[in-house]
């Protein structure tokens, strides 16, 4: 696969704060590449550097094989941007906004007309073309924001937290749209602090914390990097200390916590962990209720490599 974006040794400082710390990333053609990290981890700064919207202190960014600069118009013309904040003009209607932003890339009026109609249909805003942005709901605004960024059919589309503060229905619509754009051939860079979205959407993921690249790979590769392989939750009304000790002694069990009638057993790799746990509880005469077994999440990955919860950071 061809490399679409290559970031080498990127450093960006804001006075004393190092926002991006020697970042190296390589994004291949056709990927949906996720940048996952808590707020303030440096995701948007990386995007701003990538788009030459901000200066950086060190490193090199190559897009489509060319060095990215503010005046590299040929490269800019192949990129679409959907930024975190809705960036449209309040005084223009939905149609006019999309047409205006498309005109920054496409000069031919007839071609633009077709592209604008396609973008409107793609985001499902057919019934709102004459509406002004202030009359749109949050979800519809986000869709307009996306349409403005993709109408010119870019080869590389950057989505910077496009689903912040919107309803689940609009979120699903947006995520489906991103997958469709990828199916149509666009390479996607998707930044988010919602791990479920990244997990659902991205073929490769980079986990970022405090401006540093913590880990990168497919979701399975990331999960295989950590010790926790499976988390088993068992409703146990009463668990004796002997039984608790016994659970900890089972093979592949890393840790056991017991609080408010719920035993949380973390296991590394191994097979039939649930069977072994339930067998042990039965043998010791411990009664139990419902049982849940979960594969590790990206939050577990984040927790293990950074020592803190991704969710907590989001809050």
């Amino acid at each position: 696969m061809n490399t679409v974006v290559k970031i080498e040794n990127l450093v960006k400082r804001y006075k004393e704060l190092v926002a991006v710390d020697h970042m190296n990333l390589s994004i291949k053609k056709g990927e949906i590449f996720g940048l996952l990290g808590p707020n303030g981890s440096g995701k948007s700064t990386i995007i701003n550097c990538l788009l030459s919207l901000t200066e950086y202190d060190k490193g090199e960014i190559t897009v489509f094989g060319e060095k990215m600069r503010a005046d590299n118009y040929s490269v800019k013309g192949r990129i679409g941007v959907v930024l975190q904040n809705v960036a449209v003009f309040d005084e223009l209607t939905v149609y006019e906004n999309i047409d205006y932003f498309c005109s920054l890339y496409i000069k031919d009026k007839e071609q633009r007309k077709t592209l604008v109609q396609e973008a409107i249909a793609f985001v499902g805003l057919e019934d709102f073309t004459k509406f002004y942005p202030k009359k749109l709901s949050g979800g519809l605004l986000r869709r307009l924001n996306i349409a403005c960024g993709i109408a010119h059919k870019p080869e590389l589309i950057i989505f910077d937290e496009p689903t912040v503060a919107i309803d689940p229905q609009s979120r699903n619509k947006i995520l489906e749209g991103i997958m469709e754009l990828n199916r149509q051939g666009a390479t996607i860079i998707y930044t988010s602090h919602y791990m479920e979205e990244v997990e659902q959407l991205c073929s490769r993921i980079a986990i970022i914390d405090k401006g540093q690249l913590v880990a990168t790979g497919t979701k399975d590769e990331l999960k295989s990097m950590i010790q926790t392989g499976e988390t088993i939750r068992v409703e146990v009304p009463e668990l004796t200390s002997e039984a608790l000790f016994g659970l900890q002694k089972l093979s592949h069990v890393i840790s056991v916590e017991y609080n408010d009638g719920l035993a949380i057993i973390k296991c590394s790799g191994g097979r039939h962990n649930v069977l072994h746990v339930l067998e042990y509880l039965s043998n010791t005469g411990t009664s139990f209720g419902r049982v849940f077994a979960e594969q590790p999440t990206l939050n577990d990955v984040f927790l293990e490599v950074t020592g803190k919860e991704l969710r907590d950071e989001v809050q």
Partner: peptide, 17 residues
């Protein structure tokens, strides 16, 4: 001016002379 308007970031990201 990107610092003052979100919309300017979108414009500046485009191949706009």
């Amino acid at each position: 001016n990107q610092k003052l308007a979100y919309v300017s970031a979108r414009r500046l990201a485009a191949p706009m002379r």
